[in-house]
Design a protein around this nucleic acid. Structure first.
Lengths: 234, 234
DNA sequence: TGTATTTTTCTTGTCGACAAGTAAAATACA
DNA sequence: TGTATTTTACTTGTCGACAAGAAAAATACA
């Protein structure tokens, strides 16, 4: 039974290997299961996934293209480090994309987009209630990604997704050490944003998106400052 | 002499093959030497560059990551087509990035950035004078990319580069059929932008960047409309 | 003991070959 | 002649093996 079901070698469809490796490594990187700077070994991955190095390599090339891993030619490849010194450039880009995607969603959304957005909104509220930090991070990102999709500008959406990914890493960094809650206020702000989008109120969506983004940035900076303080104290 | 110098097979350094293929294909795609939708054959490229399919493949994966080629699994891979229907999303993103990068350059540039920007400005003026459409397109993109670099936000810079690439393709599309000149006005606007950046005048840089971008968008839309008119007439 | 040089080891980059999957061509059939 | 089915041809995806480059280890030398 288990023999035929989970056959040890190959029961994989032809191009699915790379996607599987790509998705899994991506998640492990974003959840900090693979620490920034930690080495990535091709043969090790090949053994782990029971496939040759070729598809592994393809997945790594893709991850490198998105800046999630760094490659030193002829030497090693490792998980991209988090650039604390230039964190402000990240915040700048994040705030602007929150604004733009929310505004565009108010302008371009279609009726069928709203239930999807509301669904993630409820997931987020549930995550807040349960106090599951990882779920908060993930559902918040999904909520805003859905809004961006409704804005229907693939250039903004792809940059925004990249920023949300990077944000997932950064938040994970803090929420693994400190049991901190996202304030309830964020849930209310999400509700306001949905209302502005539904009403097609561009200016309100813009303003709320900006304010919400700045709240989140402040929250992260507060954690950042406190962590530094503790680090110095220890 | 020529035998040892240009030895027919391998005198290539170890990781340089992919880069060469990547750069060359990228240029051919952006200059429309490879038409959108035209097929890309791996073995053909392997023969052309006298290397195995592996490095070719890696270059293609990278190009696919940047959206320059589309891959149909198990079937074919071809040059990405230009999406005329959603051109406005491209223009929206382009205008915003012009604004943001120009503003940030006014804020964050260092003294050593200015000569580089001025250099591309002169190249652009020369291209306008000589009437070389391709050089106009290339030097204009280089000018604004340099400004973006001076703004020192890698997230904006990378999106902006992607947009400038796509713009290079679109402009190339029109300037191959119509011998049109970029107006002299663009040169003057470039000079104003440099002045605003040098003076660290954020608001002026923002305003000029936006106005300049909208000028360019208008220019393209004018060509676009005229082409459609001609297409209908024929 | 400390430094320079050689050797070894380990990782990545490239290759040629084969297998899987798809589209086109050829064949069979009505 | 027109359609369904089989066969062929061609392209991509994967594999195992080998070669090049760089770091680490070992050796030689002062």
């Amino acid at each position: 039974m288990t023999d035929t079901d989970s056959s040890p070698t190959l029961e994989r469809k032809r191009g699915s290997g790379v996607k599987m490796v790509y998705d899994l490594l991506r998640d492990e990187i974003l959840d900090l299961e693979l620490a920034p700077g930690s080495p990535i070994d091709e043969v090790q991955l090949a053994e782990r996934f029971k496939m040759s190095r070729t598809p592994i390599r393809e997945a790594l090339v893709r991850l490198a293209g998105e800046g999630l891993i760094d490659t030193l030619p002829n030497r090693s490849t490792m998980v991209a480090s988090i650039d604390f010194l230039n964190m402000h450039t990240f915040f700048d880009a994040l705030v602007l994309m929150y604004r733009v995607t929310t505004r565009l969603a108010a302008q371009n959304h279609r009726p069928e987009d709203l239930p999807i957005i509301r669904g993630f909104h409820e997931d987020y509220a549930a995550a807040i209630k349960s106090g599951d930090a990882l779920a908060m991070i993930a559902t918040n990102a999904a909520f805003h990604a859905a809004i961006a999709e409704a804005g229907r500008n693939p250039y903004f959406t792809s940059l925004f997704r990249r920023l949300l990914d990077e944000g997932r890493r950064i938040l994970r960094l803090y929420y693994q050490s400190y049991e901190e809650q996202f304030p309830q206020r964020f849930v209310d702000e999400h509700a306001e944003i949905i209302a502005a989008i539904t009403a097609r109120d561009l200016e309100a969506a813009d303003r709320l998106g900006k304010a919400h983004a700045e709240q989140i940035v402040q929250q992260v900076q507060k954690l950042f400052a406190r962590k530094n303080q503790l680090d110095i104290a220890l």
